[in-house]
Design a protein around this nucleic acid. Sequence first.
DNA 1: CATGAATGAGCATTCATTCAT
DNA 2: AATGAATGAATGCTCATTCAT
Lengths: 202, 202, 202, 202
Amino acid sequence: MRNKNEDKHQRILDAAVKVFARKGFYQSKVSEIAKAAGVADGTIYLYFKNKEDLLISVFEVEMQALVSKFRSAIAAEKDPPSQLRKIIAMHLSELQAYPELAAVFQVELRQSSRFMREYKKLELKQYLDLIGGIIEEGQRSGHFRQNLPVGLVKRAIFGTLDELVSTWVLAGNRYDLESLADSVTDIFLNGIRQDASLPEKN
Amino acid sequence: MRNKNEDKHQRILDAAVKVFARKGFYQSKVSEIAKAAGVADGTIYLYFKNKEDLLISVFEVEMQALVSKFRSAIAAEKDPPSQLRKIIAMHLSELQAYPELAAVFQVELRQSSRFMREYKKLELKQYLDLIGGIIEEGQRSGHFRQNLPVGLVKRAIFGTLDELVSTWVLAGNRYDLESLADSVTDIFLNGIRQDASLPEKN
Amino acid sequence: MRNKNEDKHQRILDAAVKVFARKGFYQSKVSEIAKAAGVADGTIYLYFKNKEDLLISVFEVEMQALVSKFRSAIAAEKDPPSQLRKIIAMHLSELQAYPELAAVFQVELRQSSRFMREYKKLELKQYLDLIGGIIEEGQRSGHFRQNLPVGLVKRAIFGTLDELVSTWVLAGNRYDLESLADSVTDIFLNGIRQDASLPEKN
Amino acid sequence: MRNKNEDKHQRILDAAVKVFARKGFYQSKVSEIAKAAGVADGTIYLYFKNKEDLLISVFEVEMQALVSKFRSAIAAEKDPPSQLRKIIAMHLSELQAYPELAAVFQVELRQSSRFMREYKKLELKQYLDLIGGIIEEGQRSGHFRQNLPVGLVKRAIFGTLDELVSTWVLAGNRYDLESLADSVTDIFLNGIRQDASLPEKN
DNA sequence: CATGAATGAGCATTCATTCAT
DNA sequence: AATGAATGAATGCTCATTCAT
């Protein structure tokens, strides 16, 4: 019983990722997800409150898995610059490895109501905080400049990665995403490192 | 007649921006836009093919205005770093000045079908090319390093700005967006300038 | 415009009476009512808030028409006994003349939620008050005994008529309802008239 | 086994009375009845063919109990007037004592399909025949007038009681029902007794 | 050009019933 | 017998779009 239920729950989540990625939230039909999961329409409502709850669940489950993966990975890195290099590389490689999830993250999650947008922020916050933690630590250790607001830096990095993945998703996954990691790292490590002279203000 | 029509056309566009910004594309009702514009439902279909076309038009019209404003502004700047500083500042100040448009750009335009997503790219391309042009010129003039792909740099800058505006929109416009411009400029000018030593590879 | 709208509104009401009478509220499909009215499903929602509102409207409109017809009829009668005879006769003849409405009144209106039941009482109250007024006047004029509570007498008369109509409806309208009027009047006029000796209490 | 089954059968019936009374037939969920009875949803289908059958069974079982109780009670009364007085008093006191059953009888049983309505008549017939028997006997014994059709008189009495109970149920059982018995008896004994002079025809 | 009443396709969700365990 | 997870048919209502006026 235990396994069968978990299996069905997971199958519905997997199907939802696929369908949401392909069609978007509003254009996805519950019956289509049910069909893709190999269950009856009504069965979905045994596991999820409604269609929106299903989308939120997809996000929650997948995001948590990603974040915890990232967390262990950066724990193995010796200093903030290496950690930043690592998280940039993983962001790109993980989403490249799971393009359907990427599509949901990049495009579909931006479709829902105000409530959901706020909900999304909650989940995303963990990830942004992970990046933010690296920046803070780097400022403390003297690797990164302290005149830059952490909140801005973490969003700059996230925004950059997000845009690169979005472009890649919308381009139909036609090129290698992972190989952009070095240049991104290059820009940001230079952009925020301690000994950078401030750019001249005109 | 001419003026009256243009007026009506514009009133519908303005109403659409407001409504889309508040509710999102799928939750916006055509009748609501009509009401906000002070026209009958059917009148909208005299000026726009359908609801999606209305969204695309909003984007087209507003984006073109924005891009041409940016274009003249950077033409007045003396060198690529100043131009970059200028465009970053304007992106933030313009969208801060017109938060409803910002909401549509940041959040709602990501809601449509595959066709629309691709369409959006076309419009957005002009803006990205504007940034790209500055980067290219800077690489030619020796201000910016040449080892960084222009396509990536322009997306990094756009992604960063986009994320900052999104956060600001979702936070309910509760803080000063424009004042982030200096830090963003700081990061990128340092991140891409010629004499930056490459960050050590582990 | 005026006429067309009223016409459509009325056609929907008429169709609703027919369909509700035949199938009952819960078994009646909105699409079926629409079809019977010769309009599209959605059109019904231009005139009525929802299915329940349609049922309430049927009751309201028809009941009001009935009550005002009754009111003028009894105004023409000279004394309370004649008025009672008249209202009993009309109740049976009117519902006999309009069997579908009778079916809705007798059977279908008892199907709805608690809210509706209470709503029904409001409408029905007017009719019960009409009977009650006759009884009160008769007690005052000395035609009817004063030891009987008006509230009970009016319900006894209404309950009797209601049951007779229900039986007739459920029997498929197979006999003459109107001809029962004399016996009913006989029972009640004897039952409540002034000079009736009280029945012996055991 | 025997007892356990009967117990379960009875528990389901009791639960059904409660739930039907509170929500009405269409608004009552089988799962809710199952829960109230402390059995699984599927178990109900071991004892009853379907939801409608469950409602019919409630009626059958409870009605038969009532009728047989009434039958013995009137057997102990000496003459038709006393019997009529007795049955009127019991009708009111029994349903007052069991308000949930009253709710089902008065309100919910009128909700079902044509088939059920006819079925109800069958069950009800026994009760009406009980009243009818008293009237017939009274006409034979000279207590009651013979110019009144038995079928009408029994329905008048039943309709009156039914309406009084309905009103009491819809009023939330807020007053004493039983105490209405004397007035009802008064009306009908006077209304149908032998020596009543016919009311003058206009 | 403008209107807005009318249309009807489309869909999330419920719940009586089944059946493998 | 008993369970309760699974089923999937069934339907009220919405709303983009049309078109007669």
